[in-house]
Design a protein around this nucleic acid. Sequence first.
DNA 1: GTGAAAGCGCTAACAG
DNA 2: CTGTTAGCGCTTTCAC
Lengths: 355, 355
Amino acid sequence: MPDPTLDPAPDPRHDVRPTLEAVAARAGVSRATVSRVVNGGAGVRQPLVDQVRKAVDELGYVPNHAARTLVTRRNGAVAVIIDEPEFRIFSDPFFSRQIRGISRELNAHDAQLVLLLVEGRGDFDRVTRYLAGGHVDGVLAFSLHTDDELPAVISRFRVPTVYGGRPERTGAEGGAGTPPVPYVDCDNRGGAREAVRHLVALGRRRIAHIAGPRDQTSALDRIDGYRDVLPDAGPEMTVEGDFTAEGGARAAEELLDRCPGVDAVFVANDLMASGVLRVLRERGLRVPEDVAVVGFDDMASVAESTDPPLTTVRQDVEGMGRLMVRLLMERLDSGAGQWPASVVTPTELILRDSA
Amino acid sequence: MPDPTLDPAPDPRHDVRPTLEAVAARAGVSRATVSRVVNGGAGVRQPLVDQVRKAVDELGYVPNHAARTLVTRRNGAVAVIIDEPEFRIFSDPFFSRQIRGISRELNAHDAQLVLLLVEGRGDFDRVTRYLAGGHVDGVLAFSLHTDDELPAVISRFRVPTVYGGRPERTGAEGGAGTPPVPYVDCDNRGGAREAVRHLVALGRRRIAHIAGPRDQTSALDRIDGYRDVLPDAGPEMTVEGDFTAEGGARAAEELLDRCPGVDAVFVANDLMASGVLRVLRERGLRVPEDVAVVGFDDMASVAESTDPPLTTVRQDVEGMGRLMVRLLMERLDSGAGQWPASVVTPTELILRDSA
DNA sequence: GTGAAAGCGCTAACAG
DNA sequence: CTGTTAGCGCTTTCAC
């Protein structure tokens, strides 16, 4: 018995929220019946359903999630894990859009989005513990780098997962007993091919590529696309950037110093392309007259506001986010048996003024 | 190099997660003792503590969150509610940064981040139900507009909340019985003053303002700051934009048509300022020679890559996110009694080339 | 200091 | 169809 003289501050969390019991009493039925009604009302006679619904409304009953999870072993939540160094998430609208798509689709499935941002080893352990705790039904994992340990952890805890972007080890390459790894990615290689072919069709002869960091499969795939069309381009025609505007500018400087005769550049993302345009302008080179530029992503905030507006390869980021959720839900609903297939979404070349 | 701490390959039977009971059996103690150890180990003799810890490690025990929540009524999760029409979150790095700060601080407090994106009435009901369900210990709410209903819902369910950005109705204005509304915001008005004073010091005489949407307090506060310095500026010198680059461009067109003699513009955010710069360039006006431009936010991806780089008012977005979490945690730890005070963080004028 | 026992609110057999 | 009865895994008095 608490000492009344202490007069403990009332805690709002302990507000008496009505329970199933209360609703049952009010409706004059058993807890089980109320439970059935709350969960869809299948197999309950209509008059009773109405009685219960009425009681629920009058009491403002809302099921206790923790109690439900405890018995069903389902928590109605999905973790989104983004493992990305600070500089990118700070400046890249990519994640906002992807998350928007995920959020929408998750809402449609009545599931919650738990956001896990990973920045280093410490965070990594924390996420590991979280997954081990089985707090989420599934995982959507992003921005994996080729040296990432996350897939290992995820597969160790057998948490149903869908990756955003092709992970380094695909199912086909996995060792024995390794389940396939479902992912959603855009057709990076095909999109890159289309971009470079466009440059070729424009009559450009010395087409360079400013690539993304080689520890990301999207960057590698775009390089492959470039090489598909230009198998004979020398290695000096490809410079590696870091997907930031500043990195793009640095890469452009290096490229122009190295190959002054370049008349076109396929840049692996729009952010870098904006840096490239800046350098080109500083050097007095006209775009697209002297040098044509094509980006990748079609990040509206960047591509539409550069000078000149950027011709670029569009990928449907939001759609990819939604697709990831659908694949995961498919997996969850199928019991643990079925692994959904990966999906590669098409890209589209958007013509503006830079090429 | 693999980290050995990740290695303690736990019980091979992954599907059966060990419970307190199992740990107790293994350590030769009661469930209660294990519980005490797991929760800090206060009041348990050292040898027993060690035994239990050992058993926990060997079994790879991780507490079941749902069970714990059920009895403690604490879920160790905080909801971040962002109520923003799609166009902004799609193009504004602001949210990414704010969320990064929140995520970091939440991690430090061992709490989870549940992201709730609100886009319309339907979503609104869903969020309401979620909060009513008491699934989170607290709420961090963003991007409130003056006509927003969220504060009403939040206050109805008494969920501890901290707002990002000053809500329309502050505690001081609230009616009787309405608790004060703690928020974290930057000094919008002071920052705007500093920006405009800088323009004045530059010798500019016809200083215009391109404002944000009037249903957001940050936009209103920046207008106030502009007027503080220039109380005699005519109403034609202020044009309302929508915080997007495109909207900034439109506003600039309107402004230049209306007041051709303008020699400086204080723009309410960097995104709009980038649109303004584009229009200025298109009209053959040099920046800063003919027209000086100052933005607001110091969004690196925008301000550093415009031509010329943008002089702007910096606000510490990540720091504000962290601060919000700290205020909320303070509130949570203090029982229900204390309401933390709001915090207004300082801004800083960053000089680049546009003014 | 430690253990036994009573639930937290809900679902899911199993009876009736 | 509906009610009864067990727990889900954990914390928390309350005895010892």
